[in-house]
Design a protein around this nucleic acid. Sequence first.
RNA 1: GCGGAAGUGGUGAAAUGGCAAACACACUAGCCUUAGGAGCUAGCGCCGCAAGGCUUGCGGGUUCAAGUCCCGCCUUCCGCACCA
Length: 835
Amino acid sequence: MAEEKEFRYDPAAIETKWQERWAANPALYAAEPTDSGKPKFYVLEMLPYPSGQLHMGHVRNYSIGDALARHMWMRGYNVLHPMGWDAFGLPAENAALKNNTPPREWTLSNIAAMKRQMQRLGLGYDWATEVTTCLPDYYRWNQWFFLRMYEKGLAYRKKSKVNWCPECATVLANEQVIDGKCWRHEDTIVEQRDLVQWFFRITHYAQELVEGLDKLEGWPEKVRTMQRNWIGRSEGTEVDFGVENRSDKIRVFTTRVDTIFGATSVQLAPEHPLVAEFTANDPKLKTEVTRLVEEQGRAREAGDVGGIDKHGVPTGHFALNPYNGERVPIWVANYVLMDYGTGAIMSVPGHDERDFEFATKYGIPVRRVIAPPAPNVEEPSMPFVSEDGVLVNSGRYDGMTCSAAQKQLQESAARQGFGEAKITFRLKDWGVSRQRYWGTPIPMIHCERDGLIPVPDDQLPVILPAQIEITQQGGSPLSRVPDFVNVSCPKCGGPARRETDTMDTFVDSSWYFYRYTDAKNGSAPFDPARVRYWFPIDQYIGGVEHAILHLIYSRFWTKVMRDLGLVRNDEPARRLFTQGMVIKDGAKMSKSKGNVVSPDDMVARYGADATRMYALFAAPPDRDLDWQEDGVAGVSRFLGRVWRLTAKYAPLVHSGTQNQTETQRVEPVAQKLRRKLHQTIAKITQDFQGRWHFNTCVAAIMELVNEIQAADAQIAAGEVPSPILAELLRNLVLLLAPFAPFVAAELWEELGEKGAILRAPWPVSNPELAREDEIEFPVQINGKLVIVVRVPAGSDSKTMEAAALADEKVAARLAGKTVAKTIVVPGKLVNLVVK
RNA sequence: GCGGAAGUGGUGAAAUGGCAAACACACUAGCCUUAGGAGCUAGCGCCGCAAGGCUUGCGGGUUCAAGUCCCGCCUUCCGCACCA
C-alpha cells in the first residue's frame, strides 16, 4: 500500500527537477560545431512577439518543433533548434503610455517571463544563440543591410500615398491593410496620406519570387498559391491612346489587346494625373469627380471595396485608338485603380464583365470583336470573355485567333512606337518607414548642403535613445529628441538632421534565422561559412497567418543577401509547415470571446508533458485543434499509467531474476508484445519522416501501453523474460521522449540509464519481430462483409479462398447460388461475386 | 467572383481503393478506496427484444470492392477580391 503511493505520477516534482538539470547543462540542446561530422538539421519555429504571455498557438507550434528536434537529435543529427524574440513593435509603446514603463524594460521583462514559460514547457532550445531584435547588437545589422540596399538602389525614398492608421499614428504596409482597415485595429479605417517614405524595391525580385514558388515543393500549396496571387503576375500590353486636341497620351494596360477594336471608351482612375488637368478649369467635372472619390471612401468604410457600384463621369474629352484612329470618350470611373497598371484602361464592354456592367449602365456602345471558333453557330451572350475565338470587326486582324492577334498587335505597337508587351505585377514596393519610436532607426542623415547621406558603417549602430517621452502626438517620436536628431554631416561636418523614422518590424523578422547561426558575431551579421553549413532551414514551422507578409519578405531578403554575396541559397527554407489554429468552443481563442486557455494554468494542473502531448494528440498538426480540457486530463492520466507501469516493472528489469527464461521458448505473450513494440516503432519513425500525424503516433503509444497493461498477469507470472521486458520499457520510453520529454527523462533514469535520453539512439524496428504470424481477413459476398477469417501469415490465394469457403456462415449464404467470380487479394481479403 | 481546405458517432478524431469509427473524451453500470481532477472491469454509431438492417453532407458514375477515385450540387471555414 505504501508502495502504491510511491508510484504516483507527480508532474510538478519531476518537471521541476529536470528543468533545473537542463538549465544547468545547456550543452544538451546546443548545436555542435559545423565540422562535427554529423548530418545537420535546422528546425525553426517562428519567433514570437514578446507580449508577456505564451498562448496556446505558441504551445502547439513549439510542441511540434520540439518533438521534431528531439527526434532528430536521437537520430544522431547535429540539430540547430533556436529561439528568439521579435521584440520591436507598437504594443511596447502602447504599454509605455498605459503603465508609464519604458518600452525596453517592458519588452525585456516580457521576454524573461516567456522564456521562463518555455523552460517550464521543457522546450529544448539552444539559448546560446538567442536573438532579441530590439537590442543594438541585432538591429545594427538591420541598419547595415539597409545601407547595403541603399547602395544598390534597393532602398529608396519617394513621396507616395501611404496607408495611414490614425490609431497607430503611423504608416502601414499594404500587407497590413485588411479590407481597408488596420490589421491591428479592426475598426479603424485606414486613411491615405502623402508622405515621403522609405521603400525596399521588392518588385525588383517580383519575377524571381513568383518563379521560385514552383521549386518550393516542401511548402504547402496553399501558401504558394497565396503568394502567387499576392505577387499577381499578369502578362499583357501597354498601349498609348492619343488625346484629341492635346499632346498628352493616355497609356493603358490590358491583358486583352486582341479586343482593342472593341474599346468604346477609355476609363481613368480618379487619381489619374490627367483627371486633375481636365478638372482644373471645369468646376462641374471637379465636383463630380470629388463625389466619386468620396463614394470610394465610403465603400472602403463599409469594408466592401469589391462590391462597390460602378460609377463614372464623362470628361467631355476624347481618346484616339492608335490602331484605327477611332474617337472614343474619356471617362473617370471609380472601378479603375491608380496603383495597378497605368491607372487607365481601355473599356471593352463586349468582352469584359466590368466594362459591360459599366457600359450598360451609361449607354456606352457594346461591340463584339471576338467570335467563338468556327463551327460554333450559336451567338454568344455578351460579354463574351473567352480567349478561345477569332477576331471580327477588327480590320486586317479579322480571322486571327486571339493569341495570334495579341502577338501581332504587340509587334505593330512596338514598331510604331505606341506600345509594347508588358508584364505587370500586383506586388508593390515594401514601404518600411514607420513614424514610431520602438523600432530600428533608419541610418540616414539629412544634410542641408549634401542632401541625403548614409551613416558610415563605422558609426553603426545608430542607437535608439533610451530616454524618450512617448506621447500620442503624430509624427515620429524621435523627431522630438534633439540629441538624437542633431548631428553633424558625415561628409561636410556641417549641421544635419538624422532620419527619425524607424523600420517596419517585418525587417527584423526577415533575416533573424540567419543570425541564429552566429548570434554573437560583432563584426558581421553572420559568418557566411556558418550560414552555408546550416542553410537552407530544413524545417520551418509556424502559423499560416504569415503566409504572405513574413514569408515573402524573408524570401526577398534571402535573394538580396545572395546578390550581396553573403549567402548561396536562393530560398530560406526547404520545407515549411503551417500548423492549424487552436480554437475553443468553435472559435479562435481571443480575449474578446473570453475563451482563452492559459498555458500556465494547463501546466499547473496537468503538467507540461500532458499539455504538450495533448496539443499533438487532439488533431493532426495541420488542422485546427479544438481545445478540450478533459482531453488534457485524459493525456495526463495516460502518462500516469505509463509512470506506474514503468515503476512497477523496473525492479523486474533490474533484478534479472527471470533471466533463466532467456534460453527457453519465448512465450506467446512476450512475442506478441514485442511485435506490437516493433510495429509501433515503425509507425512513429515513418511519421517523423514527413507525414507528421503525431496524433496517431500518440495513439499508437497508447495502444502499446494498453497491450502491456493487459498482459499484467502474465508479466507477473514471469512469462515475459526480463531482457524482453527491458526492451519493451526502454523503447516505450524512447518513443515517448519527443512528445513527453520530462516523463521520458525521469523514467529513463528509473530504468537505470545514465546518459541523457536525448542522446540515446532512436529505436529501430526489426521487421522480423514486427511481422504478424497470423492474418485476419474479411470474406465478402458481393462486397458485403460476411465474416472475418484467420489464416497463417503468408498464405496463398488458394488457402485463403479455401478458408473462406470452409466457413459455415459463408456456405449458408452461398446455398443455391453460383459463384461467378472470386476476388482474392493475398493477405487482404476474399470477395465472392454471386448472381 | 477567384483560389485553398474541410464536411465521418454525443465530442476530438482514425482508416496505402479492401473489416468504417483505431486512440481518446464524455456518458452508463459495477468494483475498489487512503474519497482522488485517483485506479480497475464492462458497455457505448443508428434502428431493432432479436434475427437482422442501415450508416462517412446530397445526387450520379467508375470498380469485384468507394469515406477514399471521377462528375454535378449543398454547407462551413480560410485567403484574395473592381488587378484591366
